[in-house]
Computed example of a mutant assay.
Amino acid sequence: MSPAAPPAASPDAPGTTARYRSVFRPGLFAGQTIWVTGGGSGIGRCVAHELAALGAQVLISGRSEDKLQRVAAEIEADGGRCAWRAFDIRDEEAVKANVGAALAALGPITGLVNNAGGQFPAPLLAISKRGFDAVVANNLTGGFLMMRELFTQCLQQHGGAVVNMTADFRNGMPGMGHSGAARAGMSNLTMTAAVEWAHAGVRVNAVAPGWIASSGMDTYGGAMKALIPQLKNHVPMRRMGLEAEVSAAIVFLLSPAAGFITGVTLQIDGAASLHTPLIPPLPVERSTAFDGFHRAVTPEVLR
């Protein structure tokens, strides 16, 4: 593990003229180290940038060294601090070893954003056991291993906060039943950990994003790719969410202001999960997005 060297800045590079426009006070996480899994792209990348902009030493992890190096270079070019570790959160021994090595290198870690995950679209009848197991391992088992190991090796002694990533599973997840099952499991696991770990001063919450304009949308093809630009029409706010809007919720849950909040799953979906065809859609008069991420890139599928 080592942070990548920042690239030479060009006059029009995002980091040379702009900084993350967080709504939280500068230095909020100064002196703290916070781990973001899946920090090499999408929402995880955005969260890592905001935490670094607020003074945290950020540790990002994932399976792709190239992606992690690029994000670490971005953060350092913007004046932040970022280390990275490449490993598979589904591998229990790798999780144990990397948590131990990270603590030895960086000292106590006060926060974990359990963001890593992934899935593929398929109806239930087309999902094999291998495919089902892989998605559950990505979105539930790996997150469990990360939070358990970090609690055992650090948080139990020092306290801290965990924010888990789920998704909008409230009405089932037709077309992605494996992911829906895993995400619902993570929400339930969040409640259990909140109770079992409260004595140690560890808060555990989750966020459930709906349709967010993030790089993950570009991983889909076929019918799903054609559907993505139409998703905003099924949101009462008539737009998709932005990465920065998810990041802001995560940062709040990590912050001292959420000191009496634990065991909750916060929906971030523009009321999409509450939408009903019984109520005709109304023209949207105003819907202002919070676009705080200065390095955000619109997914290709939405351009």
Rank of each mutant, 00 (worst) to 15 (best):
L189W: 08
A4H: 08
Q157E: 14
P174V: 12
S64L: 01
R19N: 07
A198M: 04
M237Y: 10
A296N: 13
M217D: 05
G15P: 11
L124W: 01
L242W: 02
S255N: 13
Q267F: 09
S187R: 14
S255K: 06
P280T: 14
F24Q: 12
R183K: 12
I75L: 01
I250P: 10
L145G: 11
T166W: 04
G79W: 01
F260G: 09
R90V: 05
R81Y: 05
T37W: 12
Q267P: 07
K67T: 10
I34R: 11
S287I: 10
G143M: 08
A53M: 13
P174K: 10
E92R: 08
E50V: 03
I75M: 02
D168T: 15
W211F: 15
S247W: 03
N115A: 00
G172F: 02
T152Q: 15
Q32C: 11
F260Q: 08
G143R: 15
V23I: 14
H234M: 11
E149Y: 10
A77T: 01
M191V: 09
A200V: 03
M186Y: 10
N164M: 11
E74T: 00
G80V: 01
I279T: 13
D66Q: 02
V246A: 05
L59I: 06
A271T: 03
A52F: 15
S128N: 04
P280E: 00
R148E: 02
T190A: 04
P14L: 03
H49F: 12
D91F: 01
E149R: 05
M146E: 01
R170P: 12
A206T: 08
P229F: 04
M240W: 06
E285M: 07
W197N: 04
L51I: 10
V246N: 04
E76H: 07
G111L: 00
R81N: 04
R170M: 15
M240I: 14
P209C: 06
A30W: 09
N205T: 01
M224V: 13
I34Y: 03
E50H: 06
A289C: 02
H275Q: 14
S64V: 00
W35F: 12
F29I: 03
V264G: 11
R90I: 05
E92D: 10
A94Q: 01
I228L: 06
V136Y: 02
A102M: 07
M173Y: 03
T192P: 14
N164R: 02
L227F: 15
N114H: 04
Q156T: 09
T288F: 09
A167H: 00
A13P: 12
A97N: 01
A104T: 00
G62F: 09
S255V: 04
L145R: 10
A244L: 12
P14F: 11
A296F: 15
A193K: 15
Q157T: 13
A213L: 07
S10L: 09
V195I: 11
I279R: 06
A122C: 05
R295G: 06
P283E: 13
L253E: 06
M240A: 11
W211Q: 15
V246T: 07
V135T: 03
L227N: 12
M147L: 14
R21I: 13
K96G: 02
E300G: 13
M173D: 05
W211P: 10
V36F: 06
P256N: 10
A134H: 10
L227G: 12
N139F: 05
Q57I: 13
A13F: 00
